[in-house]
Design a protein around this nucleic acid. Structure first.
Length: 423
RNA sequence: GGAGAAAUGGCAGAGUGGUCGAAUGCGGCAGUCUUGAAAACUGUUGAGGGUCACACCUCCGGGGGUUCGAAUCCCUCUUUCUCCGCCA
């Protein structure tokens, strides 16, 4: 959520910047500023009324003490009137604040200056590419065929137990997945991230904190009986650990990593591109989250990108990095780098990581602040990234490492799997 | 799931209707003393909004109510603790 003060100070620049998202903020901004104006004047009026009422109440107290009952009763009438006034004023204040917040919730983050303009993923900017695309033998198979051939992932079985998008991993498939999780976590811990295991269900305050609510409500599974949501990513519980916190400057930076399953309803997205592991309702992911001082946050984002690169390099997977254009940029993000692994057998790129700087957009909702050395309070910057999303890494490994003899295991994983071939 | 108790400032802990935003202790900060430190002593120290700065407003787990006036009374929710039950 943007800060009203910043909107007021940078109105024109913000409107211009949001055009990169194809978002027309002109109307919304002037409504926000008007509402804020009303909110503040109403607040001032209410304060005055309450001050008057407090004063009279004290006087009445004194009068009773002095036995001046008649005088006191006379004043009581006056305070009753003030009470009516303050009641209607606080209703107005609540309405105005709610309207203001509704507006603010609908305004996306201001894209960083280097975000390219663009309408869709077509306009994302490729900034880096690494790794050899392997020459596969004639008749190379997509991962869902390989999964069947080697009996390591059973999509039909998941169908039976739960429904589409809930695969069952089996034997070496399950062990490979577990190996990947352990390897990712170890890499992140070695890079200074603290490992966490988080709750998989969150309350709605957490959903609002990181911005899944109210705009992406339909994307989360909702346990209505207890009003809890299954997490769509570890970002939600991890970042919300710091909700309503006042950190010391010396606490920063904070770097967390955690493995969780992720649950996404993915309503309405079915079709050829979502076959196999490409898009699931439940999948595993190792996430990294950082809380940074504003002046450090972009260097930290670069550091996260390096961290993911390092992992992909060790896995020897061909990948590229995209700088997302305004049209493809997430609602809460100021700058996002997507990582994609090339799936040779499918002949397409698969998104496996996304690293974003949210600047103060989440922190403002979260009230995540820190005290600087000279005692000033300011919003921290939050960042997160996947390192990595399991199913597509798995798909990439299966497809790119297939040989006529079987699927080789990337060298770096062998100590984790305990085997070097799926056959 | 049942019965009972509780929730107050960074922490501990008073406060049961009227200068209570809240005693006291610890902690933090500043100073005195000291070559320096410790100890001792003195002062200071919650958060949010508002203001150029004051004033002023709000906040004693959340929400609602009674009252001229609520940390204090009532309702409700949540959480924690103790006991019982159940359970990996």
């Amino acid at each position: 959520m943007l800060q009203v003060a910043n909107i007021r100070a940078n109105k024109e620049a913000y409107i211009e910047a949001l055009k990169k998202r194809n978002f027309d903020a002109e109307q919304l901004f002037s409504e926000v500023l008007d509402l804020d104006e009303t909110r503040r004047s109403t607040q001032a009026e209410l304060d005055e009324t309450l001050a008057e009422s407090n004063k009279l109440s004290k006087e009445i107290g004194l009068m009773f003490k002095n036995g001046e009952h008649q005088k006191a009763n006379l004043l009581k009438e006056k305070t009753s009137e003030l009470k009516e006034t303050s009641k209607s004023l606080s209703e107005k204040l609540a309405d105005t604040t709610a309207a203001l917040n509704r507006h603010l919730y609908n305004i996306p983050n201001i894209p960083n200056a280097i975000v390219p303009a663009g309408a869709s993923e077509e306009d994302n900017e490729e900034i880096f590419k690494e790794g050899e695309v392997p020459q596969l033998a004639e008749g190379a198979l997509p991962h869902w065929e390989l999964a069947k051939k080697y009996d390591i992932i059973d999509f039909e079985l998941g169908n039976k137990i739960t429904g589409a998008g809930f695969p069952v991993y089996k034997g070496k498939g399950a062990r490979l997945q577990r190996a990947l999780i352990a390897y990712f976590l170890d890499k992140n811990v070695a890079a200074g991230y603290t490992e966490y295991q988080m709750p998989l269900l969150v309350n709605d305050a957490s959903g609002y904190g990181t911005g899944q609510l109210p705009d992406k409500e339909g994307q989360m599974y909702h346990v209505t009986e207890d009003n809890l949501y299954l997490i769509p990513t570890a970002e939600v519980p991890v970042t919300n650990m710091f909700r309503d916190e006042m950190l010391a400057e010396s606490d920063l930076p904070i770097a967390c990593t955690g493995y969780t399953p992720c649950f996404r309803r993915e309503a309405g997205s079915y079709g050829a591109h979502v076959r196999g592991l490409n898009r699931l309702h439940q999948f595993d992911k190792v996430e990294i989250v950082r809380i940074e001082k504003p002046e450090d946050s972009y260097a930290a984002l670069d550091g996260m990108v390096e961290q993911v690169k390092d992992i992909l390099r060790e896995l020897k997977l061909p990948y590229r990095i995209l700088r997302l254009c305004g049209g493809d940029l997430g609602f809460t993000s100021a700058l996002t780098y997507d990582f994609e692994v090339f799936s040779t057998a499918q002949d397409r790129w698969l998104e496996i990581s996304s690293c974003s700087n949210f600047e103060t957009f989440q922190a403002n909702r979260l009230k995540l602040r820190y005290k600087t050395a000279d005692g000033k309070k300011q919003l921290a910057h939050t960042l997160n990234g996947s390192s990595l999303a399991l199913p597509r890494v798995l798909a990439g490994i299966l497809e790119n490492y297939q040989t006529p003899e079987g699927i080789k295991i990337p060298e770096v994983l062998v100590p984790y799997t305990g085997f070097d071939m799926i056959d």
